[in-house]
């Protein structure tokens, strides 16, 4: 009876397994790196983590809606290139604000294109966004043929400094969770989950499935824009044409580690945030546990597979004992 209850608890709280996993890896991290919870270290870690967190949040909205966005990384590259071609160290606040608004608009426009193609031309999300990723890469290369760019120093200093002794990223994460909890109460969220679990069934009950699908990619584009803004704040505006490309697959792994199923209709952004943290903490542990350089990739991959296999392994063992 007790184990049955436990199962129900896990089924209802999809984040729970991920959260336990995060606590475990954080514990290990603390053992190998005692100062991990010190403000300075925490701040540094979160600051460089925020872009991927934002990207994974956008990715999880698409995944919940039953899609997948393989273009997010190249979108970050394109939008970062866009930003640094507009903003220079001498830009006035007005110019910067305008650039930020334009970058966000460009991100949403790119997402809109993805969404329209997926929802109205009815093309498979994975291959569509793979195709558009070439377009975004190409534009990034056009805008920024050589690595470069820089933003006003005050901005990167502001981004680097904790506010009231709390890392800035904490406020961002709190805002994200607030945004999500407000969104969850709306009818839109119900439509989103219904669309993700079964497009046909949702359509039959009057959900504007296509519109909802389009919006998921617009969200993803907006979050890619926010990711590129924080990434540029983090690098001081130094960019290159492929700066975000590698983030795509990380964002998907983070979503899955956070307990969101790729088949859609379930999960949430908190899982994605936890997933990104797990990925980062694993890398931290490997670094501070003095794993030889040549073995780091292997150890990292093995731990991630073990983390992914965990729930399935438990189920398999339980079933074989039950027999």
């Amino acid at each position: 009876m007790k184990s049955l209850n436990l199962q129900r608890v896990f089924a209802r709280n999809t984040y729970l397994i991920s959260f336990i996993l995060l606590v475990i890896v954080l514990g290990i991290n603390y053992i190998v790196q005692n100062n991990v919870f010190e403000l300075r270290v925490l701040n540094n870690n979160l600051r460089t983590l925020l872009p991927l967190i934002l990207l994974a949040v956008g990715q999880s909205i698409v995944v919940i809606g039953g899609g997948l966005d393989l273009s997010v990384g190249t979108l970050v590259s394109m939008l970062s290139a866009l930003l640094v071609t507009w903003v220079t160290p001498d830009s006035t606040p007005d110019q910067i604000l305008l650039a930020v608004v334009l970058v966000c608009a460009a991100g949403m426009l790119a997402g809109l294109v993805n969404g329209l193609v997926v929802a109205y031309l009815r093309l498979q999300p994975m291959i569509t966004t793979y195709a558009t990723s070439f377009i975004f890469s190409g534009i990034a290369l056009l805008l920024l043929p050589r690595p470069g760019g820089s933003i006003p120093r005050d901005l990167s200093t502001f981004y680097r400094s904790p506010l009231l002794d709390i890392p800035l990223a904490f406020y961002a994460i709190a805002l994200l969770l607030l945004f999500w909890s407000v969104l969850r109460t709306t009818r839109y969220a119900q439509y989103l989950y219904a669309t993700g679990s079964s497009g046909a069934a949702a359509y039959a009950t009057g959900v504007p499935v296509r519109v909802v699908r389009v919006t998921t990619y617009v969200w993803s584009g907006l979050f890619a824009a926010l990711a590129s803004l924080t990434l540029m704040l983090s690098t001081g505006g130094a960019s290159q044409a492929n700066i975000g490309d590698d983030m795509t697959l990380d964002s998907i792994v983070a979503v899955v580690l956070g307990g969101t199923r790729l088949s859609g209709g379930q999960g949430g952004i908190a899982g994605a945030i936890i997933g990104v943290m797990i990925l980062r903490v694993i890398r931290n542990v490997i670094f501070f546990a003095a794993v030889p350089t040549w073995s780091q990739t292997l150890v990292n991959a093995l731990i991630i597979i073990a983390a992914l296999a965990g729930p399935g392994l438990i189920r398999l063992i339980r079933r074989s004992i039950g027999r």
């Binding site: 899955v256 597979i305 296999a309």
Partner: peptide
């Protein structure tokens, strides 16, 4: 095995194996 028996989604399982294979090559 990871996909059929441990129910890991193919996308992330094969992505993880990519890391394992590349990692082994590096080692």
């Amino acid at each position: 095995i990871g996909i059929a028996l441990l129910h890991i989604p193919p996308l992330v399982m094969t992505l993880g194996m990519t890391g394992v294979v590349s990692g082994t090559i590096l080692v």
